[in-house]
């Protein structure tokens, strides 16, 4: 595609700290290359702010290659911006035209409080994982890949669920701020594998209990989560979580 430069207007959420009320600030940005990533464009704006003696915009990022799940921007009414199966860091400026106005907000959910500007605290996800998103055996050295034979379809589904990078876009998109796609993915990828099965009941029950405690909403199956998920996590994982939870609830010993 033809390379081009553009001038944009950015409206960015600025908030000093968790207690601050916050507000939108409008910034013109000039000479942005269509080959830049969205975060590089924010870097350019931040350089400009620093030169002007202003506070740069705080935002989360780490890998900048779509695998860590740190970047989190709600861009023009959609988490991670306009592209399908894509993270903010992998959004490129060729998605925009000269003269566009772009509104950038943080993830919004009580369970993800704003730390500063576009950064939110997603440690609620860590606590959900700590409640059961693991297997408690000492694994020692990695065993041979094919030591435990696993049906191809199951392995594929487990792998697809394990692709979740914990970014929280599903929560940001959901009208209920529900974390069911995330928890569904985490419960599924272990429930589908033999290594995960001894703890599958307590895992489903404990992770859902923690999810509720963190203040995420319930699931209405609207599908907004699946539509914005950068890793294409299927909403089928939510149905599987519902199934796992109820089987556990009805058959657990205690």
């Amino acid at each position: 595609m033809q390379h081009y430069n553009m001038n944009l207007t950015l409206k960015v959420w600025r908030q000093k700290n968790a207690a601050d009320k916050g507000h939108f600030e409008t910034y013109p940005v000039k000479n942005i290359s269509s080959e830049m990533s969205f975060l590089e464009m924010i870097d350019v704006l931040n350089e400009q702010l620093i030169k002007e003696g202003k506070e740069p915009i705080a935002f989360d990022h780490d890998c900048r290659e779509g695998i860590c799940g740190m970047c989190s921007m709600y861009i023009n009414g959609r988490p991670h911006g306009p592209w399908q199966h894509n993270t903010t860091c992998q959004l490129h400026m060729r998605a925009y035209q000269d003269g566009d106005t772009i509104v950038v907000e943080p993830w919004r959910a009580n369970a993800f409080p704003v730390v500063k500007d576009l950064m939110v605290d997603r440690s609620a996800f860590d606590r959900i994982i700590q409640a059961g998103g693991y297997i408690s055996v000492n694994t020692g050295n990695a065993v041979d890949a094919n030591a435990t034979p696993i049906e191809k379809d199951k392995a594929d589904d487990a792998f697809a669920a394990a692709a979740c990078i914990g970014c929280g876009a599903c929560v940001a998109a959901c009208k209920n701020s529900s974390a069911m796609l995330f928890v569904g993915a985490k419960v599924s990828h272990l429930a589908l594998l033999p290594q995960g099965s001894p703890e599958r009941k307590s895992r489903a029950v404990n992770m859902v209990a923690q999810m509720d405690k963190e203040g995420f909403g319930a699931c209405t199956n609207t599908g907004a989560c699946e539509a914005v998920c950068p890793k294409g996590i299927s909403i089928e994982n939510i149905a599987r979580l519902n199934r796992e939870y109820m089987m556990a609830g009805l058959t657990e010993d205690k």
């Binding site: 023009n76 009414g77 959609r78 509104v103 959910a109 009580n110 998109a173 203040g215 995420f216 539509a227």
Partner: peptide, 16 residues
């Protein structure tokens, strides 16, 4: 579960 909402709602992008 979401006390502060978005300035630009998602609307029909992704759900009916």
């Amino acid at each position: 579960a979401r006390k502060k909402g978005y300035a630009i709602p998602m609307g029909n992008k992704g759900s009916k």
